[in-house]
Amino acid sequence: MSTQSASPVLSIKDLTIRFKTPDGWVKAVNGVSLDLNQSEILGIVGESGSGKSQSFMAPMGLLADNAEVSGQALFQGHDLLSLGTRELNQIRGTKISMVFQDPMTCLNPYLSIATQMMEGLRYHNPDISRRDAKKRCIDMLDQVAIPDAARRFNQYPHELSGGMRQRLMIAIALLNDPQILIADEPTTALDVTIQAQILDILRALQAERNMSIVLITHDLGVVAETCDRVAVMYGGRLQEVAPAKELFENPQHPYTIALMQATPRVEADDKTQRLAAIPGQPPNMRVPPPGCAFFPRCAVGQAQPCSERAPELEERQPGHSCACFRMEAALKLRETGHV
């Protein structure tokens, strides 16, 4: 599905983010380098605190005030991390848009849908007439399958259902025809029936508009259903990056394998089997482990070298990278579980 072009649309290089807190520095993201290709849906998977959201909040200039960032995020010749607010405003909302988990915290309950849709559109296109702008908004509502779009356009957010509000957020994000859409847990607050429809809408719009989507989620099922390529994060680092089909059929990192084995599956026929839980807790990023972040919970880790230094992300097969010293041992893990 993805047509990989030579140059990526967004290129993150050696991104490191830490937050200053009263209890010391929290190292949220550690040396992440990742490309987003033209016309692909890239999934970023990880658990809470893995750094998956912060990695994409940084290029958008949306980090909290106590953050300290280093590295680069290259987009059309600009390093987004070094741009000022004014320059960034020429890019975000038009060329790169975002959709968040909870639509109700993003929408203003006092303003009509019309006002909220038109605001972004006319800010970035000052010359557009009211009539044309309105037409574009209603077309966009149609495209995200909001029924009776012309009537909905004049309503207020509370008059829409939760699923429709999220589709409205997608419509607003796509109004200016962005090259990149960053969707951060867009379906986590929704019921499965609504989730399926939103994911299908995202896929259809991506194909139609040739845009790139970054889909940030904790749900491996959502990734498998939607993404072309996947990056797995743990403890602020990329652990494995691969095409989606390859990742699910040939996972290599012990964390990826463990995560797949810990996830209950609706299609499993032998449900009497215990889930292969991952022992222990995710790392405390105030005092991250000195070596591999997953070592304290890893089934195949060894004190040397895993506890001493963090493995680099290395390309093992074309397009499939993995950060692990113990890959051969990790592959044996797959035989024990249902991956």
Partner: peptide, 15 residues
């Protein structure tokens, strides 16, 4: 049927 059909599967092939 609707509920079960909507559950995301951890499988890429055939999606």
């Amino acid at each position: 049927k609707v509920l079960l059909s909507a559950v995301p599967r951890m499988q890429v092939s055939g999606r």
